[in-house]
């Protein structure tokens, strides 16, 4: 599986070269290019919006410094390098958070709660739940509501749900696809893009 296309690889090599050359625009381009994806990766680990932002900034700091110093041996592998730095930064954050908060060693790092959700977070939460409630109310078939709860909340196996609800995988995917598409439509209409 080739994760980086030839064209993308050429672009990345060029970006790296420009950053090494001291081009700040190239650094902005890297940040813009990876910011959204980096946020997803970090948020999967730290589960905190404020922490995600902090770790994201730390990730880009590390990435740009390494590129400037010429530590990136394979510029066409820039995406993998950025992901690796992001994961390490997130994990490091968790370790530091544990030490700082004097948490038990066995504490699950992925479940460290957001210590101080800001007002925007609360608004976004309210909007998400409102939109989801609307979507659920719009579902005419009880089976579809059951499907969403079992798949995303109870995290049951997809094949088992299909068997229980007498659905094919295509029918299952259609329910999921329509629900998320409708969510995106409503959520973007209210909030903008569905980012945190």
């Amino acid at each position: 599986m080739n994760l980086v296309s030839t064209n993308s690889g050429t672009e990345l090599v060029e970006l790296v070269r420009r950053i090494i050359a001291g081009d700040s625009a190239a650094e902005d381009a890297v940040v813009q290019r990876y910011r959204q994806g980096i946020t997803v990766i970090i948020d999967q680990i730290v589960r905190s919006q404020s922490a995600t932002e902090d770790v994201s900034q730390e990730t880009f700091r590390i990435v740009l410094e390494k590129i400037r110093r010429g530590d990136l041996r394979q510029p066409e592998r820039l995406s993998g390098f950025v992901c690796s730095v992001a994961r390490n930064a997130a994990i490091d954050y968790i370790r530091r958070a544990r030490r700082l908060e004097n948490r038990e060693e066995n504490c699950d790092a992925e479940h460290i709660p957001d210590p101080a959700p800001n007002q925007l977070d609360e608004i976004l939460k309210q909007e998400k739940s409102r939109v989801v409630r609307q979507i659920i109310n719009e579902l005419k078939i009880e089976r579809d509501r059951d499907l969403l709860n079992r798949y995303y909340i109870a995290e049951q196996d997809k094949d088992r749900i299909c068997e229980d609800l007498h659905l094919t995988r295509t029918q299952f995917n259609n329910v999921i696809y329509r629900a998320i598409a409708r969510f995106k439509e409503l959520y973007v209409r209210r909030v903008g893009r569905p980012e945190r």
Binding site: V4, R33, Q36, V40, K128, V132, N149, I180, Y187
Partner: peptide
Amino acid sequence: VDCSDCTDRLETTKAFVEGLRLV
């Protein structure tokens, strides 16, 4: 991380699941 379509899907799905959990 370098695919806006997948990132977009990830964000949307993530927000939807969070909304489901909130509800």
